[in-house]
Write a protein that binds this DNA or RNA. Structure first.
Length: 913
DNA sequence: AGGAGCAAT
């Protein structure tokens, strides 16, 4: 009789709290046996293929593989002919294998020392030993049959044919379709990939065209760094080259690409940065925007710019947008709108030449912009498109059918039809994208012949059974606890459990509870290994999630935030427990406040979470909410651009030439209020001129990898009268990495911390405190030990040094005349006040003054604000303060606070005179 | 006297 972890009096025969889940429907239960069989068959098939690749007979169990290999080896040594290859070949292969293994081991070590684990102080990076090209080629050859099984390979012909005719391809590729790894390899063979001479519109509006060499490289953007790096690594393997040669990647602080690179993976932010230096993206023949459904600010902006380029200054640039959800329909429309605007514009120009009246008014900004092809979108054009859509719908736009993988069609949330009907599945084969598009055209300009096409590639995913609770759950952490034990007792191994929660605190609480209960489990029941996963967790501990449990007969239970929803795949998971909530950032433009709130997830998010159970085998997903609660959920997550401060986005838009940000046709507009607030903020920072156009200062700020306010501070620090560039860089770097100062729990440790931190207690405030901290850290011979002693995150400090290095590189170019070439030895009161005056240039809106009752009130708006307890100025009273951020928790707090004089605030003020 | 997610340049 098992020892019951729960004492809730519910039942004494079963551990399961019967009120959590309903049993699956009968039909599902019957289907389970068949699926189990199919699963077995699939597994055996895979194993047979793997064994064949290893030169072993099929159906050899895993545990015997090593034995057989050793046996073969012995046979070879004994001069007996081995079963599959000659003795000589065998030895050669063996030697090659050993060499390969040794290289892999060495490489791993080096990567570990360069990447996840920082080098020890004084450590010397060892040279990377690279395998021979022939070895890489051989490896690539071995991978080829596996690649050919990916669903996307059936569509290679259609995709390539479509892009030969059209410039924009919007593709729905589900998880597991292989789109991210294969698309680059498909397109690289195309003729249009060649570097070539083309004429492009000159930027100065004189209407003359210039000639330039463009193309040769394909860019693939990703929302996350890890994704970009891992994809590049994988594709380099498949192509059979060294990472950084033909295949490479480029992310912040890490660039493994060269002149040779033809397939380049980058983060969307990195491509934006490249666009500021090379607006026409001359290096690239094609740009692929991957994971567009995630709708990060970066992808949204990239898509906006690409749309302008492909119908304007860079006609012939190929654009592929890939998304895993029905977002494709919206994106295709987004590109079509611009196409129609371009068509209308050409027509208008044509008409004007014929002496007719101007039909379409383009972007009140004047003719110069028009020649650049930057069209804003007049309402009449969009309406025109809408009419066309209506017609298509009326005819019943063709749906994709006849596809054996098509599971989309039986989903309940009925999806809008594709924009272009000709995107049928595999049945079409290659060269088939002509379809009805010519009839769709309303122009005689053949360059724009149906330039948008949509496409669908199904993924490979095992079925996932989804369960809902019959009744609403009051406490989802408690419900998760019950569900985990229910699963653990009922479901056979293997089959790990992945639990989605909202934050670190919840995860730690649940971990403790599970571990407590697990101790009282019956000895016959398998053990439980609880593994937390959230971004603040040190990478070494994060890695444990990906490794199998050390002890046998153990089930892993992974407690994760959103991080496991998209960017990482945890192996071994067959059960997902979904609490249905997520913490999201919300921005309130009126008060300029960003806050995090626990909100219900979207349907697509719920689907994505469920899908995590079916990556390796059929799985199950347990939702800790009722089916009725699922129905009103939003279809998709609200795009990030609607939820954050848009000042830096506006700055990027303007720096890229899109001056009228209010009229810009966003994929989703942040709204007038948020835009105006962003504009106002930029105005205060001095990035805009009187008419709202960007000025030189603004352009400078846009190129810095910093939020606008910090960029302004950095530029101010380079001015001769303030002259504190080095100091400002140290502080800015400290402010732009998170969590430098650790907060230990427990009274004893806290006392230790306060004692150790005393030496940084500066009466000037947190900014100067950070500066002295950075300086102190640098002067230490034993940095890591010092950091531990002072409760400073060593890892964060390493990041800080990266940021600082980058900022120094940037500032070398635009401030050659900065008088101080070396940092000052000590922080004198004069230097401190100069530094704080710099920060006022960027944070004038974040100032408060002391009022009579001893509290602080903001200079703008006269709102009450208190100094956060984490500040060195906590509890102190000074004339006025400047602060890095405003947070609202139990009340309004200022964090990152320094003391300033009211007189300084007046000096730089736009309203103070 | 307070603890906030993920990501990016």
């Amino acid at each position: 009789m098992p020892d019951f972890p729960f004492d809730d009096g519910l039942t004494n025969t079963k551990l399961i709290p019967a009120n959590v889940f309903t049993p699956p429907p009968k039909s599902q239960q019957q289907g389970r046996r068949q699926r189990k069989k199919a699963e077995w068959e699939e597994k055996n098939r895979l194993r047979a293929a793997q064994r064949a690749a290893e030169g072993l007979p099929p159906h050899v169990p895993d545990r015997e593989v090593e034995f057989l290999k050793k046996k073969r080896q012995r046979e070879t040594q004994r001069h007996q002919s081995p079963p599959t290859m000659s003795q000589r070949e065998g030895k050669k292969a063996e030697a090659l294998h050993h060499e390969e293994q040794a290289n892999v081991k060495k490489k791993r070590k080096i990567e570990a020392s360069n990447g996840e684990f920082p080098l020890l102080d004084g450590g010397v990076p060892r040279p990377v030993i690279q395998p021979h090209r022939e070895q890489l080629k051989a490896q690539a050859l071995r991978l080829k049959p596996l690649r050919a099984k990916l669903p996307i390979w059936e569509h290679q012909g259609s995709i390539r044919a479509a892009l030969r005719e059209k410039d924009v391809l919007v593709m729905l590729g589900e998880t597991g379709s292989g789109k991210s790894t294969q698309i680059g390899q498909f397109l690289i063979k195309e003729k249009w990939m060649d570097r070539r001479r083309v004429s492009i519109a000159s930027g100065n509006g004189d209407g003359k065209d210039k000639e330039a060499m463009v193309g040769g490289c394909i860019a693939i953007t990703q929302p996350r760094r890890v994704a970009a790096i891992n994809l590049a690594r994988r594709v380099a393997q498949e192509v059979g080259c060294h990472l950084g040669d033909e295949v490479g990647y480029s992310v912040r602080f890490d660039n493994k690409s060269s002149e040779k690179t033809r397939i380049k993976f980058l983060t969307d932010g990195m491509l934006l940065q490249e666009m500021l230096h090379d607006p026409l993206l001359k290096r690239y023949s094609a740009v692929v925007v991957d994971e567009a459904h995630e709708r990060t600010v970066g992808t949204d902006l990239v898509m906006g710019f690409l749309r302008g380029l492909v119908y304007g200054e860079r006609k012939g640039l190929k654009v592929v947008v890939m998304s895993a959800t029905m977002e494709v329909d919206k994106i295709a429309l987004f590109f079509e709108r611009e196409r129609d605007a371009a068509l209308a514009f050409i027509k208008a120009k044509e008409d004007r030449r014929r002496g007719k009246k101007n039909v379409v008014e383009v972007n009140g900004n004047g003719g110069g912009k028009v020649d650049d092809g930057k069209l804003s979108n007049g309402i009449e054009k969009v309406e025109g498109r809408k009419k066309k859509r209506k017609r298509e719908n009326g005819e019943g736009a063709p749906r994709i059918n006849g596809n054996p993988y098509d599971r989309m069609s039986d989903r309940k949330d009925s999806s809008p039809p594709f924009v272009n009907g000709e995107s049928k599945g595999s049945g079409e084969g290659s060269g088939s994208s002509n379809g009805n598009s010519s009839e769709d055209l309303d122009t005689d300009d053949e360059q724009y012949d149906g330039t948008v096409t949509a496409f669908r590639v199904p993924g490979r995913q095992f079925p996932v059974e989804i369960y809902h609770t019959p009744e609403p759950v009051l406490d989802y952490v408690d419900a998760a606890l019950r569900t985990v034990f229910q699963l653990h007792y009922e479901e056979p191994l293997p089959g790990d459990i992945l639990v989605f929660l909202t934050g670190q605190e919840e995860i730690e609480a649940l971990q403790k509870q599970i571990e407590d209960y697990a101790q009282s489990m019956d000895k016959k029941v398998p053990k439980i290994l609880v593994l937390p996963l959230y971004s603040a967790l040190p990478p070494g501990l994060q890695q444990r999630v990906f490794q199998p449990a050390h002890e046998k007969n153990t089930r892993k239970v992974i407690l994760s935030t959103n991080i496991a929803e998209t960017s990482v795949t945890v192996p071994g998971v067959r059960h997902v427990v979904d609490c249905g909530k997520v913490k999201t950032k919300q921005y309130r433009p009126r008060i300029g406040l960003e806050s995090l709130l626990v909100t219900p997830i979207s349907k697509s998010s719920a689907l994505q979470r469920a899908g995590r159970a079916g990556r390796e085998a059929p799985g199950k997903c347990y939702r800790l909410y009722t089916e009725r609660d699922f129905i009103p959920l939003a279809d998709t997550t609200v795009p990030e651009i609607l939820r954050c401060d848009v000042a830096s986005s506006i700055l990027v838009l303007k720096a890229r030439g899109q001056d009228n940000v209010l009229a810009f046709d966003y994929l989703d507009s942040p709204g007038r209020e948020a835009l105006e607030r962003g504009l106002g903020h930029l105005c205060i920072l001095g990035a805009l001129d009187n008419s709202g156009g960007i000025n030189d200062l603004g352009r400078k700020m846009a190129k810095l990898p910093l939020v606008p306010a910090l960029a302004r501070v950095l530029i101010a620090a380079a001015e001769p009268e303030l002259d504190c560039l080095h100091e400002a860089i140290d502080i800015i770097a400290a402010l732009s990495v998170e969590n430098i100062l650790l907060t230990p729990t427990g009274d004893e440790k806290r006392e230790q911390m306060e004692e150790a931190r005393k030496e940084f207690d500066r009466r000037e405030g947190d900014h100067i405190m950070l500066l002295t901290l950075v300086r102190e850290y640098e002067s230490q011979p034993q940095k890591k030990a010092w950091a531990e002693k002072h409760f400073v995150s060593h890892r964060a400090m390493q990041n800080l040094l990266d940021v600082r290095k980058q900022l120094k590189q940037y500032t070398i170019h635009f401030t050659p005349s900065s008088p101080s070439l070396t940092p000052a030895a000590t922080v004198t009161p004069d230097l401190a006040s100069r530094i704080l005056k710099c920060f006022l240039k960027g944070f004038l809106h974040n100032t408060a003054r002391l009022v009579q009752d001893g509290s602080y009130r903001t200079v703008v708006g006269n709102q009450a604000v208190a100094i956060h307890p984490s500040s060195v100025l906590f509890g102190k009273r000074v004339e006025a303060i400047v602060y890095h951020e405003f947070v609202y928790t139990t009340r309004a707090f200022a964090r990152g606070v320094s003391a300033v004089e009211m007189g300084w605030i007046g000096e730089g003020s736009v309203w103070g005179g």
